[in-house]
């Protein structure tokens, strides 16, 4: 809660109509209802007594009963008929709340979903067109339950048994982890955890978690692991990993934005040459096949050969 004048006026424009409707309210009840700090609210009220109908003669001013406020902690406001309804939602407020509710409904189920839908429809009906919009990616939607299990395990500091899919190996792995935090970045949710299998900090994409079972055992403390900040890159390639140079046709240029690349060079006809570090050749192979034939491996040669061989093997299935 800030102490700026605009914010203070905003709070008063909510408080006055509420008191007018209720007749009188205790400071505590009013503060709770509006999600405000009670002390702040009392400070705000003292502004009101200098405001009112233009001219500001004694009879024009808004009256706050300071006696009952000081002695009984009760708020009574008179002479403010023109402030009998709260202010409509601003464009910023309307977009912020409707987008938040729409995001919530992506992971809600059953009665909560119904209530969210009902609330959203009614709020959208009175709100002006928003100036911000979010589309929740498909992969975020199915994971609501796993996400809440993991969030709870983080809070309760319990170990979790994960069945985790590793795409590069096309394999499900079993591991015990100490969950640290759930982070959302670039449209995907991740669990940051201490992995006892790898004996180190790992990020697990929640949509690749096949199963998560919360164990009885408590999670170990890892004070040395710092929470990820918003600006941290989630993945930093190891400086020892071999460098691979690819030539991307326009259809495959997205790779340069999606993965951390070491360098890029523009080539004729919209092609882009990129160099990236590849820690796992199987990961690269999957990427190349996904991009086929819009990518060429320029170096090293053995990666180019492996790509051609993989394409040949796959093609044989269709003959």
């Amino acid at each position: 809660m800030t102490t700026g004048a605009k914010e203070q006026v905003g709070r008063l424009l909510a408080l006055v109509p509420m008191i007018r409707r209720e007749g009188e309210m205790s400071v505590e009840a009013a503060a709770t209802a509006l999600g405000m700090d009670p002390e702040q609210l009392v400070t705000d009220l003292r502004v009101l007594i200098y405001c009112g109908w233009p001219g500001w003669m004694p009879g024009d001013l808004i009256e706050v009963d300071l006696e009952v406020l000081d002695e009984d902690g009760l708020i009574r406001i008179h002479n403010a008929d023109y402030l009998s309804t709260p202010l409509r939602l601003s464009a910023a407020e309307a977009s912020a709340i409707t987008v938040a509710l729409r995001t919530l409904r992506e992971s809600a189920q059953g009665e909560t979903l119904q209530s969210l839908d009902g609330a959203l429809a009614k709020i959208e009906a009175v709100a002006e067109e928003g100036r911000v919009e979010v589309h929740v990616p498909e992969q975020q939607r199915g994971i609501g339950e796993t996400r809440s299990t993991l969030t709870r395990a983080c809070t309760d500091r319990r170990q979790v048994q994960l069945t985790y899919y590793v795409p590069a190996r096309d394999e499900n792995t079993e591991r015990t982890v100490d969950p640290l935090e759930v982070v959302d970045r670039e449209g995907a949710s991740y669990l940051q955890a201490w992995c006892h299998l790898a004996n180190g900090r790992r990020l697990f994409r929640i949509d690749r978690i096949v199963d998560a079972r919360v164990l009885e055992s408590s999670a170990d403390e890892h004070p040395e692991v710092e929470p990820l900040s918003l600006t941290d890159r989630l993945f930093t390639p190891s400086p020892d990993a071999p460098l691979v140079t690819l030539r991307l046709k326009p259809e495959a240029r997205w790779v340069a934005e999606y993965y951390p690349v070491e360098s890029t060079k523009e080539r004729a006809r919209g092609r882009l040459e990129v160099t990236l570090r590849v820690a796992d050749e199987r990961w690269l192979n999957r990427l190349l096949l996904r991009l086929a034939p819009h990518v060429t491996v320029l170096s090293p040669q053995e990666y180019a050969d492996a790509y051609a061989a993989a394409a040949q093997d796959a093609l044989r299935l269709y003959q």
């Binding site: 909510a14 509006l34 405000m36 939602l89 995001t103 975020q140």
Partner: peptide
């Protein structure tokens, strides 16, 4: 901030809004 300002206005209009519900894990938008 804009979201909580919106909730303040809705509360002022008489809606009883529960700000402490924890039964669903809210996805976050960063």
């Amino acid at each position: 901030g804009a979201t909580s300002d919106a909730l303040t206005k809705l509360s002022a209009a008489g809606l009883e809004i529960d700000r402490r519900r924890l039964d669903i894990a809210a996805p976050v938008v960063t």
